[in-house]
Structure formats: C-alpha cells, structure tokens
C-alpha cells in the first residue's frame, strides 16, 4: 500500500521527523511545567475534556442501559418487597429526623446564647457516577455533573453513609473526584466520642484509612466513629468518615498504629451527593 502511493521512493525518510519530534517534546515539557502549578491550563483541559465527553457517555451507556433494563423487568413481587422495605426505612428515618429537627433548633438556640456562628444547613445535590475509569493509579471517579451545575474544585462528596471524597477537576459536563482512600488524600477528622482531632490518610486500599498522627496515649479505641472536623476548610463538619477498627500501641514507637474502615461504600456507590457548604470557606483544598 505504501509503495502504491508512489511518493515513497525511500520510505525510511520522513521529512523533518526529528525536528517535529523535538518540537513536540519541548511543547510537552512546557505544558507540563505550566500544568504543574495547576490552574494555568484549566481552560484547555476543559475544552479537550468536553471533546472526550461523548466517548465517556458511550462507554457509560451499556451500564446505564443494563440498569434501566433490570429496572424495567423486575417482577411485581420484587417491587412490592422493595416498596415495603423502603416504607419501613422511611418511617425509621422520619422518626429520627423529628428528633433531629428539635435538636437542630436547640443547637441554634444554644449557639445564639453563646454568640457563636450558627451552622447553616448545607445545600446538596445528587449526582450519578459514570461507569468510566479514569486513572488506574489513583482512586477516583467521574460524576455526571460539572461546572454548568455549579460544581467547583475541592467540593465535598458524600453518600448515604459517609464522606466519599472531593472534586479535584471540574469539567463542563463532568467532574473528577478523588476518593478519601486515595494514597494522596488526607482529611481532617475528629473522634465523635470525645472530639479528639487528627488526620485520616488514604492508603490506596479501598477499605482502609490510616490515622498516623495519634500518640500512644491518645484516647481512641476500636469502634470509635470519626467525623469530619471541618478544619481543612474543604469539608463541612459533622459528616461521618470512618469507624476505627484497630488500635495497636507499640510502647517504643511514638505513634499508635490506628486503622479505620470508611463508612461510605467507596467501591459500590452509584449515586453520591455533592455538598455546597453555605459560607464558601477558604479556597484551599487539603489534598
């Protein structure tokens, strides 16, 4: 075929190949240099991201279709069972919610008495996770809403059980988020029982967080619930993060070896909630 094109008397010679490759390498290095400080190239990233969007939608489509198909073919029997279960669950949740409303009012009153800033209720919105793998070396996921819906970098993501992660790159129609289990992610938490503050660090394993900065004599034990402390500015306070599952104290080590299991089902979630915490805190993320 190449020979039939006629212009390949010496096919080994591609004009200016070396020059072209050199130029492209230089451009790549320049791009990486600019991108390393983030933000500079967000526009370009978003533009190309929009071009990749159709591919992501197509890849996601079979999963969505399968889900739809399963939904529309479930038997009446199963639906009734599910309905019963949901009704019971709703009753329970509502009962709890009644107490919560009273508690919230009480809390606001007490805070007013103490002259403290009232915690404003957070704005949430449900997003669906696209069945798209982004980077195999990071724990992350892609959600189906982006900057057009007001998503911003550093925004907190939770599911029904606890904190899932935070948005790291906002596209136009999608956003990429890092999970709290990512090895590069750290999250300021406090022990719900006694308010002990520390940092939960991702391990790269989906079902384990480490708490590396707790001294040996810290008051923490297996079963303790960790909630966000809100200190990093990225996450609103009070959302459950993980449950401590083991505390190992080695006398000659300065820090205790504490691991925790994330409350959110990080590898199973399909729908998540994005939180707009009312007063937009400082811009920094605690990545």
């Amino acid at each position: 075929m190449v020979a039939s094109r006629g212009n390949n008397s010496n096919p080994a010679r591609i004009p200016a190949l070396g020059l072209r490759v050199l130029a492209l390498i230089l451009i790549s290095i320049l791009l990486m240099y600019l991108d390393h400080r983030r933000n500079h190239l967000d526009g370009i990233r978003r533009g190309i991201g929009a071009a990749v969007y159709p591919v992501q939608v197509v890849v996601d489509a079979p999963v969505r279709m399968w889900k739809w198909l399963r939904q529309s073919t479930t038997s009446r029997n199963e639906l009734e069972l599910e309905l019963g279960r949901l009704r019971a669950e709703r009753l329970l949740t509502n009962a709890r919610l009644q107490r919560l409303t009273a508690l919230e009012a009480e809390n606001a009153r007490l805070r007013a008495l103490l002259d403290a800033r009232t915690t404003v209720r957070d704005e949430v919105r449900v997003a669906e996770i696209m069945a798209v793998d982004a980077n195999p070396y990071e724990h992350n996921l892609i959600i189906d809403i982006g900057s057009t819906d007001g998503v911003y970098d550093g925004q907190a993501i939770v599911d029904a059980n606890g904190v899932v992660g935070q948005v790291i790159r906002t596209g136009i129609m999608t956003a990429q988020a890092v999970l709290i289990s990512d090895a590069d992610h750290a999250l300021p938490v406090e022990v719900n029982r006694n308010g002990l503050r520390t940092i939960a660090v991702g391990t790269g394993e989906i079902d384990r967080l480490d708490l590396p900065f707790l001294p040996n004599n810290a008051d923490i034990r297996a079963g303790d619930l960790l909630v966000t402390s809100g200190l990093g500015g990225a996450f609103p306070s009070g959302y459950p993060v993980a449950v401590v599952n083991s505390v190992t104290r080695i006398p000659q080590e300065p820090f205790a070896d504490v691991t925790a299991t994330p409350s959110a089902a990080l590898d199973q979630v399909r729908e998540v909630m994005l939180i707009w915490s009312a007063p937009p805190a400082s811009e920094e993320t605690d990545e």
């Binding site: 451009i27 790549s28 290095i29 320049l30 791009l31 990486m32 600019l34 991108d35 390393h36 190239l41 370009i44 990233r45 190309i48 991201g49 990749v52 591919v55 992501q56 982004a134 980077n135 990071e138 992350n140 790291i168 790159r169 990429q176």
Partner: peptide, 8 residues
C-alpha cells in the same frame, strides 16, 4: 485530559 494527569 481523561486521566487527569499532568498535561503533556
């Protein structure tokens, strides 16, 4: 872009 790695 789709990996979210360093551009380039």
């Amino acid at each position: 872009v789709s990996y979210g790695t360093l551009l380039g």
